[in-house]
Each structure stands twice: as structure tokens, then as C-alpha cells.
Design a protein around this nucleic acid. Structure first.
Lengths: 304, 304
DNA sequence: CTTCATAGGTCAAAATATTTGAATAAAAGG
DNA sequence: CCTTTTATTCAAATATTTTGACCTATGAAG
């Protein structure tokens, strides 16, 4: 075995940080130690991982292969360490939860409040994802529970999924927007000729990314969260779908107007997915809560 | 990262060889070096991997977890090294082919003869598998091409499958066997009350093993290859299915008799499966040959 | 065109980590 | 009860990795 997990960590850090110097700092080592590790790996495998002709090191083609596959290997190794810890204590070191931004945050807070009452000493790491990001987080090991996964589950061992409920979308425009005054249903042509605001898929390479409710050849302004999308919509920078729960207050205040449109996207059926082998007592409790009807209802109900 | 690939290799070797001493020999190290590596890993993870109360070291529960998951990690690491080599040269270091014992060996020899004419310098490692063993070898990385996979492909990235043809089975008994003289079709009762000879599934834990053509509550004599099965059938130790191609010569000589039976197993539809990312020029040539009609026909045709 | 900050590489010394083999102890087998 | 086998311990020998001072080249700024 020529590869070591340590050398993969070094490569990963250099790629992530962008330079030997920054990676060295991140790893609490000295730059020349990284040079040593990288050169050693390169000579072991007889490949060049970094192109040193330029001023700063740049990954070669085979270097990209090593880094991207190496990340998967590291993720698996980390998961093994988590499972070992689980085996010892029955509890997870840290509960890694990802959620789709479609899931109203209030409901998560409600759930986490109950969680902390029961497990006051367990760390929770919550990460917001968009579209495929939930699946990606689960498969890459960034999360062990994903709340609000949509579409087909990637078929794989060690993955459970249950339905959670569905989210209704409304197509909105700002009252300042050119389309605000149009009385009839918007046509595809109306939509095509105006900029659409989209939230970027948050996948990080474990599964292909995707987009939703966008017509081909449309001008797209991509943002990173629903809050940014709302701001952009309010400012009249473009048009697009919003979950009803997010849009409600602005519709009530008249700042956003609901428009009828040809169906571009259907109500999203969301699910909860998790990795059974990576869950301990805390994670299983959380799944039990998510299975309860009350919990489901809260999540997709909008108070009036 | 507390785990190292080296420590996993050490654990793997100890588990495989059955003792520190034998593993040390296999790894060309001294036993105390293994003690050191194992103790270090144990203290890093704060677990005990081996139960040392007895004379020889025995894996604990968590030790089993580490070894079995560690094997997968090691297999992935080896695959990465193969891909790196492939990226450098375009050729595989070694072509790892597994085949189901159902596939007549002559046809493989014919294929490999053509292969060596074209690629005289590429090592080939051929391994015989039974039932799920072909898939298992492919998923575990013991093989990159599997000839004669059957049933559903395990759905997974980086896996291609094409049909190869099908194999006809005949149910046979020795002329010495008690059932040899029975004229009519054998009943389920006839079969149940006699020992059946089965070939053991050769999976090694990457997928669940399975069996075929066996009635529940039947007395089973399990052997490891079709040749052993033939010997056992000839000796009248039991009854069972054989691929027509294997059985032909014994049927012609009268040593085995074909019996009509209620349908227990259907003709097996076989396929070829491979891992595209692990194939180079040699492997792709092999796949091209396997796709050719001539090759398919040879494989399931029996010369008269 | 020069200057200069920064990036990364080189090298020998120092710090760590691993391997070795002899000695020890404990269990299994005869 | 003796022998063989198995694993561990320990200090010395060896190998690997880290460090920090020094070096060179690039690319940006003046």
C-alpha cells in the first residue's frame, strides 16, 4: 500500500486551502513538512500530483483524481471512526443533521429544543442544504440524518428513507416588477423573457447537482439561500417560486404577488433519510420524533 | 485521523492468518512489531481489538467491526492505486477477471488465448466463483470484469452489465443411485427425501450469499466446485442439477441419468459485468470481445 | 525594468516513530 | 510435567518525519 490516509489529508488540505502555506497552517505543520509528504507520495506512486512550473502549485490531471477519490476514502475512514465510537458508548460524538432550506426552520428549532432537553450533552451540527445537497451530505458523511430530501433516493446500502410531507410552492413577483401589473396567467414566454432567481444546489461532488423550475435558455440569477432569494425577489431583480411558508408574510403585506403560471414544478414531496449504521441513541430518538405524525404536521403546516 | 491504512492491513493479516506470528511472517515483520501497531491503534481509539485472555488473540466485537469495515477501506484504497496506475499508462497492472463456474472453461481459454496474442505482457488473474461470488468479487475489487454474473445487478455507480447468454441445466442422478430406476418424473417428495449436492456460494461478505434449486428442509451436501459436485453425483452421494455442458459426457457414457423434475430452477441468464473506471486498454478490449456475438455463442453452445 | 513579497523547495539537524531481537510469561498439547 | 506455541515487554538500533534556516523563482507593483 503506497497511499497513506495522512498523505491524502495533506493533499486535501492543500487543495481546499489553495496553497502549501495555508494548508500547513491549517494542519499545524510547517510548509516543508507538506513538501516532504507530497514528494514522498509522488515518488511512491511515480506520478506528479502538483504542477510546480508556475508560482503556486496546481493540481495535475492525476492529482485531481487522487484528491477527489482521496476525499471519499477519507470520508469512509472518518465514518469508521464514528462507528467505533458509537460501538463504545452507544451515543454519537456529534449528531450531524442536514436539512433542506425548504423545511421551515421554526419546526427544526422546536424539534431541537426537545432534543436538547433529552440529550443536553450531545453536540449537534446542523447544516442547510439545497436540492441534491441533502443527499450529498448524507452520502459524503457530512450528515447522518437528512431532513427534507427530495426525489429518488440514491440506491445504496445502509440508507433508510421515510416520507415527511410536502411543501407547496407559489410563483411570486415583486410589486415593483414589470410583470406585477399583468392580470392574466403568466405564459412561458413571460417567464423566459424575465430573469429567474434560483437557489444553487449545494451538492459537493458526491452526486450530480440539479436544478428545478427553470426553463432552458432562461437567464438565471443564482443565489445561495432562500433568504437571499427573497431579498432578490423583493428588490424586483427577478421572478421565481418560493415555498408558501417563506412567501406568506410578504404576500400578506403586499410586497410579493402570487402569479398563476404554467406548472413548472410540482409540490415537493420531502422525506427524512438517515444512515442506520451511523446512528446511536440520540440519532434514533430523533428519527422516532420525525416519524411521529405531530412532527410531520408541524413541518408542512403554515399557521394563519 | 486515528486510523492508518497500515494498521488496518496489520489487523486484516492477523485475522486472515489466525495469529500474530503467522501474520508477522506474511507481512515480513517481526511479531512484536505487530503488537506495537495493534496496541497503538487500540490506545488511539481507546478500544480493545483483541481479547488476550486466552492463549491466542481473538477479535472482540468492536474488533470485528474494525476488521470488516477496514477490509472495505483497504479495497477502496487499492482500487485508487489501480486507477492511478491506469491513468499513467492506460493499461492495467493486472487484469482481474472472475467467472462463474457455470461458464464453460474452454471458452475462457479460447478468449484468453486471443487476449495473450494481443497483450502478451499483461498479467491476468482469473478466479472461479459461484452464484453471488461474481458480484462479490466485482464489488470488493477482487475482480474488475466478472463473466457469468446472474440475477439482479447490485445497483451502484461505476458498474456496467450486458447479457451474455443462458445456460441450460439438467437434473441428474448416478446410475448407481436409488432414484436411477424410477421411470416417471421425480416428485418434490422424491427430491426432498434424498440428499442434494450443492455448490457453495463463493461470496466473501460484500453481498449476502444465496443458494439455488434447493427445497427447504432438504438435506444438503455442500461442495466448493462443479467438479466436486460431479464427483459426488457420480459416486451416488446425492442428486442435483448440473449445467448441460458439464453433464454431457457423463450422460453420453451412461454414468449419469437425466431425470424430469418439477421446475426448481430456470435456465440461468448470465451476464458480463465490469467496473468501467478500473479498466484500461486491455480490459476494454476484453469487454469488446465479450460483446461480439461469436463469443456469446461459443459460451453457451455445446458441441456434439 | 527593477523591486519585493510570497510561494515552494532544499538540506542537515533534531525529534519521533517504528522495528528488531532477546528475554519473559502464559496457555495448549502431548 | 515437559514442550511447543503464542503474545508481550523492553532497550537498542534504525527509519521516518518535522523543523527551521536558507535558497530560488514567480508574478505583481511601482
Amino acid at each position: 500500500m503506497k497511499i497513506t490516509l495522512d498523505s491524502l489529508q495533506v493533499l486535501e488540505a492543500i487543495d481546499r486551502c489553495g496553497s502549501f502555506a495555508l494548508a500547513a497552517e491549517a494542519l499545524h505543520r510547517v510548509p516543508s513538512a507538506l513538501t516532504y509528504t507530497v514528494s514522498k507520495l509522488e515518488s511512491q506512486l511515480s506520478i506528479t500530483i502538483f504542477d510546480r512550473t508556475g508560482h503556486r502549485a496546481k493540481l495535475t490531471a492525476v492529482g485531481h483524481l487522487v484528491v477527489s477519490e482521496g476525499r471519499k476514502l477519507l470520508a469512509n475512514a472518518e465514518q469508521l471512526e464514528r462507528r467505533i465510537h458509537l460501538h463504545k458508548t452507544g451515543y454519537e460524538e456529534q449528531l450531524l443533521i442536514s436539512y433542506d432550506q425548504l423545511v421551515p426552520f421554526d419546526n427544526l428549532i422546536f424539534l431541537l429544543d426537545k432534543f436538547y432537553q433529552k440529550f443536553p450533552n450531545i453536540d449537534v451540527k446542523l447544516s442547510a442544504e439545497v436540492l441534491g445537497g441533502c443527499w450529498d451530505s448524507l452520502l459524503s458523511g457530512r450528515a447522518t440524518i437528512a431532513i427534507g430530501v427530495s426525489d429518488d433516493p440514491p440506491i445504496r446500502d445502509d440508507l433508510s428513507v421515510i416520507p415527511l410531507g410536502s411543501i407547496d410552492f407559489v410563483f411570486v413577483v415583486s410589486r415593483k416588477h414589470a410583470l406585477a401589473t399583468k392580470k392574466q396567467q403568466l405564459t412561458n414566454d413571460d417567464i423566459m423573457t424575465h430573469r429567474i432567481i434560483a437557489v444553487a444546489d449545494s451538492t459537493r461532488g458526491f452526486i450530480p447537482s440539479r436544478s428545478t423550475g427553470i426553463l432552458s435558455e432562461q437567464v438565471v440569477f443564482t443565489v445561495n439561500s432562500f433568504n437571499e432569494k427573497i431579498q432578490a425577489l423583493l428588490a424586483g431583480l427577478g421572478i421565481g417560486y418560493l415555498p408558501l411558508s417563506y412567501a406568506k408574510e410578504y404576500i400578506d403585506s403586499g410586497e410579493l404577488l402570487i402569479k398563476n403560471v404554467p406548472p413548472l414544478c410540482t409540490p415537493a414531496a420531502l422525506g427524512v433519510a438517515w444512515r442506520p449504521s451511523l446512528l446511536g441513541k440520540a440519532g434514533n430518538w430523533m428519527i422516532k420524533q420525525l416519524k411521529k405524525q405531530t412532527c410531520l404536521e408541524r413541518i408542512h403546516t403554515i399557521e394563519n
